[in-house]
């Protein structure tokens, strides 16, 4: 499938500080992406550039083959669930849903009202009086009810408890199955989305660090655990990015793909090989 979004050499600077530096990345149609990065890495800046909030200092962002900047056609195909509140203060939830219906072509108002009911969201309430969790739910409902081919979500589960998060992920996947399109989910809860996203895009200090399918990313490293002196023997000459010791039991994370021979070596030293978690890999990759 083709690319829906291409980010070509995009930088954004504020005065002298660079929020994004020479980002080159593209997103395919019909995939769920995770946009991962530490606080202040530039995730939200990138989403803001895609959605016409401000202009990139250099480079261009293309939706299809058209630049997104000040382009009504491109912008009508993107839906952005911001983390911050951008809605008029006085609007009720119902008014917000109706305004989305007025401005987005093919906004499914019936589906939106149905979701509101499923999440027990009181649509008569003013948006500004909602709790953090219900604010997120309102924004989620709007994003899922459009049929924009590109949907961006910034911290979608902010303020949601575990049960509601679970419900959200199920409704989200059901929605994705019904209307496959490109989702870019920016989040800190990496382990929680690691099964849901197909590819991860990691940004660190304004630069693109990595873009890979999650499955492949998890093959990039592995953990070895066992008796500490045996682990040390195994570690010799390998790229160890992290080690942890409890008593005489040591676990190390190696940033190399595991081979058949590694398996044999580990077995001979009475060591156990376990896959690395995305969250841990992320911490190593973006660590100081």
């Amino acid at each position: 499938m083709g690319n829906i979004l291409e980010i070509n050499n995009v930088s954004k600077t504020y005065g002298k500080t660079a929020a994004l530096e020479a980002i080159n990345v593209s997103f395919e149609e019909g995939k769920i992406y995770g946009l991962l990065g530490r606080n202040g890495a530039g995730k939200t800046t990138l989403l803001n550039l895609i959605t016409n909030k401000f202009e990139a200092t250099t480079g261009e962002i293309l939706l299809g083959k058209e630049s997104v900047w000040e382009n009504p056609n491109a912008q009508s195909k993107i839906c952005y669930m911001t983390e911050k509140n951008m809605f008029p203060k006085e609007f009720t939830v119902l008014q917000l849903l109706k305004s989305s219906f007025d401005f987005y072509e093919n906004f499914d108002l019936e589906y939106a009202l149905n979701l509101a009911e499923q999440f027990k969201l009181n649509i008569g309430k003013k948006f500004k009086t909602l709790s953090k969790g219900f604010e997120s739910i309102t924004k989620i409902i709007i994003a899922l009810s459009t049929d924009c081919p590109l949907v961006l979500m910034d911290e979608p589960v902010l303020g949601l408890d575990a049960a509601v998060r679970d419900k959200f992920y199920r409704i989200f996947l059901d929605n994705f199955a019904r209307k496959p399109r490109t989702f870019i989910i920016s989040t800190h809860l990496i382990e929680e989305v690691s099964g849901i996203i197909e590819e991860a895009v990691i940004i660190d200090s304004g630069r693109l660090l990595l873009k890979k399918p999650v499955e492949e990313m998890l093959q990039m490293g592995y953990c070895v655990a066992g008796k500490s002196n045996n682990v040390d023997k195994y570690a010799e000459g390998r790229k160890v990015v992290h080690s942890e010791m409890v008593g005489n039991f040591k676990t190390i994370t190696i940033y190399e793909p595991v081979s058949q021979r590694d398996n044999q070596t580990a077995a001979s030293l009475d060591l156990e090989i376990v896959p690395v978690q995305l969250q841990k890999l992320f911490v190593h990759l973006t660590g100081d």
Binding site: T51, N52, K53, E70, N71, P72, Q75, S76, I78, C79, Y80, T82, M86, F87, P88, K89, S99, S100, F103, Y104
Partner: peptide, 16 residues
């Protein structure tokens, strides 16, 4: 402020 922010999030460009 209200109008500008709201309409931007609804995909309306500055020119429109």
């Amino acid at each position: 402020k209200n109008n500008f922010n709201h309409l931007n999030i609804m995909g309306v460009t500055r020119k429109t």
